[in-house]
Design a protein around this nucleic acid. Structure first.
Lengths: 231, 231
DNA sequence: CCTGCTTGTCATAAAACTGTCACATATCAC
DNA sequence: GTGATATGTGACAGTTTTATGACAAGCAGG
């Protein structure tokens, strides 16, 4: 599977190693930003968003773990995948790094192939299991757990119901035709009756009704459906 | 910082020195076990777990370095801190000992104060770094012994089950895809069916069920698995 | 070479999900 | 109101996904 072009922040003070990383990342078609100081990295992370962070454990300015801890403490960037690199190849150090929130770990010296493999694996994951949290007032939808929370009350939907809600939530108030929904939810190449949408809407409504939001999916006769929270 | 009570294994054939060590360790509130033979020490290390090993380089039965090499090689997971003691205070010998995996080194004769200081330093390090104890409410996972405690009830898992639980516990509530678990638990380069994850999950669940946490590993249909303690 | 334990795979059972249909209701134009 | 059209609803079967038990290969320790 090809991972599309990503932007990777490399925090590493050893120039030769950093260059090596950069070359390999670029060979896979990714953009890279290099940074050799922890405090500078912190600023960069505040300013921009990256798809992956390669973090050396031993860096000037701020220790790697400190940076990681800060990163995980912040809400916004908390899902940024982090690959931690270090010369401390001891098991306990590794465990500690992972506990602090690193998603993977690579010991120095490393094989370039392994670096690439781990990076690609992390990127693959992050694109398939993104933690999207839509938040329309009282309703939260978490793409990662396929769960929906309405005023704290948990609601676990079936895959199709979830996708349907997710799709309609992206444009609250907008009317979606059955054809449109079939395309986005079921996929452009599915052989499914339009009436199937009705059935799924019904099932979704039933679930939502359980938390007092049964009417948030409305029917526009002759047009389709739309989503809007009951006020 | 006060280091809580630890159990120290002293491997030393000179009785007077051994007694001296013992007295000082006990004065700091630690338990000690004395052993004057390398082979016996090996048996003890197999049978029990200690928090620190004070190892004389010159001991009967087995040479100190051999024991150390065995310890580091045999149980790759062993992170037991080792303080090596010897009369051979030459630099190169010292280097050799550290290379073999000793965590610190003390030349004979030694000042009792120095012994105590080094021991305390090692213990402090080990409690903050080595014995990583995950603690999600009632569940404790000890990376060193591969044991899991649930409300006091001990649970010894098989290697794979342990790794699996350990991986999922790092991000409680988060869903891990089978691919993700294969990468982290089995390794990125393993040729294992995705269904194997199911089998291992089943085995892990069975163990957890024995202590009333069978449902803490949940299935997210179409997505993967996640860990979350039953509340 | 045994022996016991771990683990990968497979076949099968069980469960969850979804598409469709038949019919009930609702809405609209006249 | 009446018929025509659109949508709601419940049931059911087929499909997909996961659970489970069995089994053998792999492996470490004797």
């Amino acid at each position: 599977m090809v991972v599309s072009k990503k932007h990777i922040l490399i925090v590493e003070d050893d120039v030769s190693i950093a260059r090596l990383m950069q070359i390999h990342m670029q060979s896979k078609g990714h953009d890279t930003t290099l940074c050799d100081d922890g405090l500078d990295a912190q600023i960069l992370l505040k300013e921009k968003t990256y798809d992956l962070l390669i973090l050396d454990r031993m860096i000037p300015g701020k220790r790697g773990l400190d940076l990681l801890r800060w990163l995980r403490g912040e809400k916004k960037t908390s899902v940024l995948p982090v690959l931690m690199v270090t010369a401390l190849a001891m098991t306990n150090e590794r465990v500690r790094g992972l506990n602090e929130g690193a998603d993977d770990y690579l010991g120095k010296p490393f094989e370039p192939d392994e670096l690439v493999a781990r990076v690609e694996a992390l990127l693959r994951r992050s694109t398939s299991l993104v933690t999207e949290v839509f938040d329309s007032q009282a309703l939260q939808l978490d793409a990662e757990t396929m769960e929906v929370k309405v005023e704290g009350k948990l609601l676990s939907l079936r895959p199709l119901e979830f996708k349907l809600l997710q799709t309609m939530m992206r444009k609250p108030g907008r009317v979606f035709s059955r054809e449109q929904l079939l395309d986005t939810v079921w996929g452009m190449d599915s052989f499914v009756e339009e009436r199937t949408v009705d059935a799924t809407v019904k099932r979704l409504r039933k679930e939502l009704a359980g938390v007092g939001q049964g009417e948030s999916v409305q029917t526009i006769r002759g047009m389709g459906y739309r989503f809007q929270l009951k006020s």
